[in-house]
Design a protein around this nucleic acid. Structure first.
Lengths: 157, 157
DNA sequence: TATTGTTATACTCTATAACTATA
DNA sequence: TATAGTTATAGAGTATAACAATA
């Protein structure tokens, strides 16, 4: 997902960005992704793999195609993510008996363990970046962004 | 910056993402960037070009190197951004007389006009995605993210 | 000898298109 | 004939490295 620390320890503060909410959201997201990626790599996950595991557990898609729509990517990308997760022993591909074209990604016990670890990594990044907010403010931020996603996304099929 | 609408009109809502603030921030940022990119392209800007113009006006960096640190990218990328903006007539490269190695990017009147247009595009995206928030909630969101950037970034030199 | 901007290069990421197997 | 997954390919984006000009 991109790792700012490769070429620069810390970005400099640009008012031009801080003043503009759309630019600001992107900068913060970039920071979050970069830091999370480091921690996730250390436990054998990529950012995308972590997201996929989270969706597999929470939304139970019944095919790779369904997963691709939930992630918001093209089906071909899911193939590479599934390959990765399968190689790590975190998911198993199981053909759907009712329609053998579909492959269902089943999370293994190891997959659930690494997801839990990934959530701790994500939480650590959150604490690092949102440490200046108290619990209530953090929940408001979460609610505001969740509302945005809900207003934009179509309800899952 | 990536345009979701090319291959999918709307993403499906994934609880696995909505529940996790770090993933959620990234999804929202992706939506913002995709939508903004479309509107910006229509007025002759890229997302990066818009950001650069915003920083040039607000932070007045005195070299491309300084700009690269404010954007958070490598100096070679600034060359391509500067080329773009110069080709559009939005900035001019001026050698710093005090140190002729440095090239200062000076925003032209046309650059200021297109930046104003870009801000309207950004505002429209904001209204579209944050329409569910009242003015106060939106300002709280902005403040929360600004605080994050401030706690993470080093004060500009 | 160090620094700024530039150019050339390589690498990563991801969408598109062709192919297979199932329906 | 249409759909799910896969493979191969190409294009965009961006960091790295070598180079020219200036300090």
């Amino acid at each position: 997902m991109g790792d700012p620390s490769d070429w620069q320890s810390k970005p400099e503060l640009a008012s031009g960005v801080a003043e503009r909410l759309p630019l600001l959201i992107n900068h913060v997201a970039f920071e979050v992704a970069g830091r999370a990626e480091l921690g996730l790599n250390a436990i054998g996950l990529t950012g995308k793999g972590y997201m996929a595991l989270a969706i597999l557990e929470a939304d139970r898609p019944r095919s790779q195609l369904e997963l691709s729509r939930l992630i918001g990517c093209v089906p071909a990308v899911v193939v590479t993510i599934a390959d990765e997760l399968e190689a790590g022993g975190f998911v198993e591909r199981q053909r759907d008996p009712a329609d053998r074209r579909r492959s269902v990604l089943v999370v293994t016990p190891a997959g659930r363990r690494v997801l839990a670890k990934g959530d701790r990594v994500a939480k650590a990044v959150e604490d690092e970046l949102l440490g200046h907010l108290d619990a209530e403010a953090r929940e408001q931020l979460h609610a505001a962004l969740r509302g945005t996603l809900e207003s934009v996304a179509v309800p899952a099929a």
